[in-house]
Design a protein around this nucleic acid. Sequence first.
DNA 1: CCGCTTCCTTGACTCATTCAAGAAAACGGG
DNA 2: CCCGTTTTCTTGAATGAGTCAAGGAAGCGG
Lengths: 148, 148
Amino acid sequence: MHAEDYSATLRSSSLRVTKQRVAVLAAVDTHPHADTETVIRSVRESLPDVSHQAVYDSLHTLTAVGLVRSIQPSGSVARYERRIGDNHHHLVCRSCGLIVDVDCTVGRAPCLSPSHDHGFAVDQAEVTFWGLCPDCRSGSEGPSDQGD
Amino acid sequence: MHAEDYSATLRSSSLRVTKQRVAVLAAVDTHPHADTETVIRSVRESLPDVSHQAVYDSLHTLTAVGLVRSIQPSGSVARYERRIGDNHHHLVCRSCGLIVDVDCTVGRAPCLSPSHDHGFAVDQAEVTFWGLCPDCRSGSEGPSDQGD
DNA sequence: CCGCTTCCTTGACTCATTCAAGAAAACGGG
DNA sequence: CCCGTTTTCTTGAATGAGTCAAGGAAGCGG
């Protein structure tokens, strides 16, 4: 996706187009499940002087309008992704933190309707699978930590 | 559940029985989805001088042996509960943070097997439903914040 | 090109959680 | 019942993701 596309995407959500936002959107697009620090590093490759606050603000704004989704498995910091609205879920490694997407194949949204909704207006079901990734299963020691 | 029962529970998991651990276990048992601060306050009703560190340590230890489970919906601090191994899930209010248990009625663990496991050894599927609780649906302003 | 509004920079700050060192308590063996 | 070893608790400081706030800069409609 080119810069112009990101600009158009921002505009279509009624957001002002700034180079910081374009860079943040690009960073999230090219680094699925990246945490804020990774996004900051990625953004600084093209804009060396962005402040961390601009990145936090952009991520919040993009999340608010739905261009980006934030996920936060227990024990992890916030991570961001662009795949939205396709009802996919996540597989998280307990050992190294690796996160991979899994498509929801159980036909129409498997867990979208809790047995008894307690009067809640449910708008989303988030499924997180916990386990050990291939690398951590083999090496008993397990790879370092906090992969993506 | 009485103190002796909590002691027995700790012993059956090969843990030393300390009044701090008994109190923490009791606090989690009586305050489902409580965050650490709430647990500390609850514990201090019977043990005014416990350190916060003792509570953090106990919660980690209890979680490690499986007597307690920790959950952490995005944007929330860690919360603890004693209902474990019964495959129940959570309903979280986006507005006030209220967390409610929902039983998993879709027969045998609905989402326990991702379509493609990417080589992971999956041991748990965690489902979180997001929405608005009854109170936040009615009062357009929505109740304060961070309920349980 | 102007001006209003929104966004970014800078720098301080919050607060959940962790780290570390020494004191205290648990509990198996004598 | 007491001792010694090991684990746990207390105390106090530190870490780090994320937030707050004020002023300067940039976006964009006119």
